[in-house]
Amino acid sequence: MARDGDAGSAAMIRLAGITRTFHLGDSVVNAVDDVDLDIGAGEYISIMGPSGSGKSTLLNLIALLDRPSAGTYRFEGREVVGLDDDALAAIRRESIGFVFQSFHLIPRLTAAANVELPLTLSGVAPAARHARVADMLAAMHLADRAGHRPAELSGGQRQRVAIARAMITAPRLLLADEPTGNLDSHSGTQVVELLEALRREQGVTLIVVTHDADLGRRAQRRIRLVDGRIDADVSD
């Protein structure tokens, strides 16, 4: 529950000069262009901007799913740019939860098995896994859906399963890329409130990429990207 007042020295995330370049045929595009960004533990941040402004690319970089073409990235005080794939995977496993617009649940697995997956990948023993999954599903009001496959769940339920999966390892950073993009407004609101409750109750740092202005406004710190650059960074 550490919410550092001084985000500068205790920044969870410290991006400096981060650039991500894509080569599309002959043209070179900087999807993220020389971004400096510090994010403190426990912050609630929304990243907005028009399509193609580099929101998702920036989020993937923060999530360690992608590697910057230039710049440095300190995650919880540790330089991560030069780390190999498995070291990055270990950080993702232990510290980062990710929620996708299209849920990305594995269709053949039940809700419970989907939620269990990160623990399985971390080598947690089956008995401990099952107990934690049951608790998590109950907390998400999904206990009665544990045995259902994704196809048998509504969109809102699927996203809640995905959030349960992201939170099952008790990460310190929760990233959501358009979490309400595939949901109706009612389910979307539920999902957003769930994410906010997790941040409030568990102190997780929450970063949401969205182009839903209402959703974006709910965050205490609002970052606006245009053409891969930070156009605005406003805190309450």
Binding site: A90, R93, E94, L119, T120, L121, S122, G123, A125, A170
Partner: peptide, 11 residues
Amino acid sequence: MNNLETGSTLA
């Protein structure tokens, strides 16, 4: 720190 009980890789 993380509170994963055991191991760090897929069994």
